[in-house]
Every structure is written in C-alpha cells, then in structure tokens.
C-alpha cells in the first residue's frame, strides 16, 4: 500500500476502486476508448481493436497464471477454440457471430476445465509441459478440422441487430464494450473470495488446503475463467478477421501471451495485462513497421525480419529478471516518485 493513503474501513479496503490513480486511469481509459474512432483512421483503429482483443486473452491468462499461479502454455490454443467455434457456427450453421460469441467462451471454458485436470496432480514444470502438450494436440486438432488452413467468416454473419460489424467503427465500439465488461468482471474476480483463494493457492497450495481452501476447485475455476476469456478473445478475433487459420494459435503465440502477462505484471489482472499487450503487441507493431524498413535500407536486411524475435525475447527475459512484478510496478514507482516529490525516497 502506498504511503500516505489510508483506509479507515474494511469497505474502503475491499472497494473496487481503492486508490486515486485507479479513478484517474479509469476516467482516462474510458475517454480515450470512446473517442478513439474519432481520432484514429482505419489502420490505427484496427490496431486498437486487436489490442482490445488480446487484452481480453491476456486478462484470462493473467487470472490463471498471475492470480492462481497455474502455469499455462495453451492460451493461444484456447483462443483458437473460441475462434473456430464462432467461425463454424457462422459458416456451417449460419449463426450470427454475436450470438456465437458466448458459445465461444463456453466451449473454450470447457476445454480450459479439461486442461485443469493435470493441475490437480502436477505442479510447476510438469504442469507447464502438460499444457504445452495440450497446446500442440489442440494445434493438431485445428489442422484436422481446418484442412484448408483457413476458415472464412462470412461477412453477412457479422451483424448486431441493424449494426454492420464489418464497419471498423462499429466493430471497435462492440469490442470496446465487450473488453470493458470483461475487464470489469476480472477486476471483481480478483477481489472476490475466489480471487483470494486463488492467491492463497498461488502462494502455497498445501498451506491453502490446510486453511480450508478447496484447492482442486480453485485451480479448476482459474483454468475455466482463463479459458472463457481466451474463448471470448478468440471469438472477437474471428469477428474481426476475414478468415481464421490455426497458424495464429500456435505455441509461439502462447509464448507471446505468457510474455505479455509476465512483462505487464503477473497478478495485476486488468492494467498489467493492458500494459503487456500495449508493449509487446501494439507498441511493437508500430515500431516494427517503421523500424524494419530503416534497417533494411541500411543493409541489415538479414537482421530486419529476425529483429522482432531478438528484441522481444530479450525484453521478456530482461524484464523477468529485473522486475518480478512486471512493468506496471515500474510505472507505479515512477508515479510514486512524483507523488511523494520532493521526499521521494
């Protein structure tokens, strides 16, 4: 708890908005979020949409990994489950994508619950490997149900009542509302009894079980929620895309998602996840599209394509080593420095 901020009641300590910075961030985020379509052109609006989509997926992974301490390398595959649910519902059954979205969440949640089964017996590396195995098996399953390596999403299925979701602005607001609701829910999960049980399991599951936490149930809930978020994110991704292919949901993507959690701030479910996405995905996309041509022009064209891996990999490793709580902790320190100025030590 930052110095100088006092809680006088338990309600105050358990409130959804606990610190002034939350209030400020929330107001800024809502304003920025709502006004984005007025300020940005289509390209940047699309970047914002994908950022929101990945935010949802990373929030889910952050609940599984950061809050409950259950390592998962299968989040991208779970996104894939959601994406294919929406794609097939729209393509084969002609279901409207918006109606298929909750279904995507539920399907992925069920798979997520299945993935929680190994966690009852396994921990740490063995659990990481079980989820890695699940990731690769799901990739195999995708390649079987999607033999052309892409499944088109019919544009006529992308409607919400009379609103055409093929329009970037409409899709943006739709994604924004869904993502905001999901983030709100995630913030509340973190401070609910389930959230506290998850933290107890993360810190020491044997101790947690001794004080009466139902450990398997808590792990299952953590995986289930993580899966649900991944499914919704995958579903949104399908709505956004012309077509989806399983190459977007491979192990490398899972590693990236895990990187976003660890870089942003594990356990900092809402804002940490957003920071992770903004740095690793959106920030990088913007940087790359301008950096790579410069590098190529300088004659480093062999480097130019590979630079993404080198820079992002190094960034992930360095941040994990130097800053266990992720970049959001760095931001907090910066904020504290100025808040407590001139006595900022």
């Amino acid at each position: 708890m930052p110095a100088g901020v006092f809680k006088e009641t338990y309600e105050g300590d358990m409130a959804f908005i606990r610190y002034p910075i939350h209030k400020a961030a929330l107001v800024l985020a809502v304003i920025a979020g709502l006004s984005a379509p007025l300020l940005l052109d289509t390209y940047y609006l699309n970047l914002a949409i994908t950022a929101l989509i990945f935010w949802v997926a990373v929030i889910g992974l952050n609940i599984t990994v950061g809050l409950a301490g259950q390592i998962s390398l299968a989040q991208a595959a779970l996104m894939g489950v959601g994406a294919y649910t929406v794609a097939f519902a729209a393509l084969k059954l002609g279901v409207n994508v918006v109606l298929a979205l909750p279904l995507a969440g539920i399907t992925a949640m069920i798979i997520g619950l299945v993935l929680s089964l190994p966690s009852f017996k396994l921990k740490e590396y063995y659990l990481a490997m079980a989820s890695l195995a699940a990731q690769l098996l799901l990739e195999y399953a995708f390649s079987r149900i999607d033999p052309d390596q892409y499944t088109p999403i019919p544009p006529e299925a992308k409607r919400l009542a009379s609103i055409d979701l093929n329009e970037p602005e409409a899709l943006y607001y739709f994604t924004f509302i869904v993502a905001a609701l999901m983030a709100l829910a995630a913030g509340n999960i973190a401070r609910s009894s389930y959230g506290r049980a998850m933290k107890a399991v993360r810190d020491n599951d044997v101790a947690a079980s001794i004080v009466g936490v139902n450990v398997p149930l808590t792990k299952a809930i953590a995986f289930g929620i993580g899966g649900f978020y991944a499914g919704i994110a995958g579903g949104l991704y399908a709505i956004y895309s012309v077509g989806i292919g399983w190459e977007a949901f491979t192990l490398v993507n899972s590693i990236e998602l895990l990187g976003m959690v660890l870089i942003g701030g594990p356990g900092r479910v809402v804002w940490g996840s957003l920071l992770g996405v903004l740095v690793l995905r959106t920030g990088w996309t913007l940087l790359e599209s301008n950096l790579v041509p410069i590098l190529a022009a300088m004659g480093f064209s062999a480097f130019a394509s590979a630079i993404k891996y080198i820079v992002l990999g190094t960034l992930i490793t360095v941040v994990i080593i130097l800053e266990p709580e992720g970049l959001i902790a760095v931001l907090r320190r910066v904020k504290e420095y100025f808040r407590l100025w001139p006595y900022s030590y």
Binding site: V279, G283, L287, L322, E323, V330, L331
Partner: peptide, 21 residues
C-alpha cells in the same frame, strides 16, 4: 538505475508508438 532504464525503455516504446501514430 535499473528502474530508470526500464522506465526509459517503456517510455521510448510508448513515445515511438505515439510519434508514428
């Protein structure tokens, strides 16, 4: 020092993003 380096890194990425935006 490390925090300052890290903060600088983040700020650079964010600023670069904003600039290109």
């Amino acid at each position: 020092t490390l925090y300052i380096v890290l903060a600088a890194l983040v700020i650079i990425i964010v600023l670069a993003g904003a600039y290109f935006l």
